[in-house]
Design a protein around this nucleic acid. Structure first.
Lengths: 208, 208
DNA sequence: AAATGAATATTACATTTGTCATATCGGCGC
DNA sequence: GCGCCGATATGACAAATGTAATATTCATTT
């Protein structure tokens, strides 16, 4: 199995190479120390697995991984992290990374590589326990892309709290007919029929 | 590494033993074909890892796993499944299982065992992609405790999909006035004002 | 058999909601 | 200044919604 090791701490990279090659089954075909290097190395030698640090100077492992996976969705990327950088776990997963394990866990790295080589996904010990927390998807709804103005968004949120037109009007110092107009255009833009569907839309699309 | 193999299909169990022992590093110290056997085997020989089928006659792999983990939380259990039994994935995970992989993936099993031996958690290829869906905490809303009948619950769900009274009526073969009556009592019981608030309630309380 | 109670339906009514056409007003570009 | 635009408002109207009182049916209990 040919792998590439990317870590901006040379010492770590070399230690990894030594350890992994001593297992007999693994060849470190290339080493790099930045996201950009990871990308060019991947293009050049197509290693079976990329073992990459998350945090690096310049381009992070995540960014590099995203680019690599965009080019070749079958790329196998296994992330190494010093101490669970929570924020990245989900990002890496959604991106299609094959795993996320702790650097400290030296003995575990070779088996993890083997498993990844075989299509499996691997998580370090403490990492999996955090998943439930992290997994709840944060919304990335783009109002602008849907042509929703600021005021419209505001009104949508109030509808999604269950307020009536009158209540919304009072809260925003508008006429209640105005509120109805806003809702009308909102419904038009989103191809919905009534305020209830608007609320449903909010909970299922915007704040999913 | 000593492992136990539990599968109620003897043929599978024997194949697994053959394959795994041929890797040189793994010893199948015991084989069983039921959840109960798994438990007594674990008590007796304390294998490093238990490789267990999910679906078995009598006690399922999940139930057996729960009992084993209750006795020894450090037990390492790796589940085998024929085809991703969605419902069990989350259960197994929350329970503290070390992984969940597909039986078909013969080559992957040995590396997965190695990884698990080293404290990692492993998922088969297609399995991981389902996690986000399954992970979101399932609601434990108690309709009965709120005096919500079955039909009322049904109607509430349809309102929460954004259907109009007429649509709900058609779907349930009721008069649309009847639907309105149901909604009325629903609103009464939950101290809400209108269908939109009912939908909001659904997304924030019932299916939170 | 009579009484009870649930599920469903009907009707009438008041209110809210959504649509549409139109109006006002404050800038802003030319 | 003039015209135009976006934000806000109005009024009229149809449809949907929520409420309340009452009716029908059917099965269960007494």
């Amino acid at each position: 199995m040919n792998i590439a090791v990317i870590d901006d701490d040379k010492l770590v990279a070399i230690s990894l190479k030594t350890i992994l090659e001593s297992t007999g089954n693994i060849t470190v075909a290339a080493m790099g120390s930045s996201g950009d290097e990871a990308i060019s190395i991947y293009r050049e030698i197509r290693p079976d697995v990329i073992l990459m640090d998350i945090r690096m100077e310049g381009k992070t492992g995540i960014e590099a991984g995203a680019e690599i996976l965009a080019e070749d969705p079958s790329a196998r990327i296994l992330y190494l992290t010093t101490f669970s950088d929570d924020e990245y776990i989900v990002k890496a997963l959604n991106m299609g990374a094959k795993g996320y394990i702790l650097k400290q866990d030296f003995d575990g790295i070779a088996p993890a590589l083997e498993a990844v080589m075989n299509g499996q996904t691997v998580f370090g010990e403490r990492i999996i326990t955090k998943l439930p927390e992290l997994m709840k998807p944060k919304s990335d709804y783009d109002f602008a892309a849907h042509g929703i103005s600021d005021k419209e968004r505001e009104i949508m949120e109030l509808v999604a709290e269950g307020l009536s037109n009158k209540e919304i009007a009072a809260k925003l110092f508008l006429g209640d007919g105005t509120v109805r107009n806003y809702i009308s255009t909102l419904l038009e833009k989103l191809c919905l029929r009534d305020r209830t569907q608007l609320a449903v839309y909010y909970y299922t699309e915007v704040r999913k």
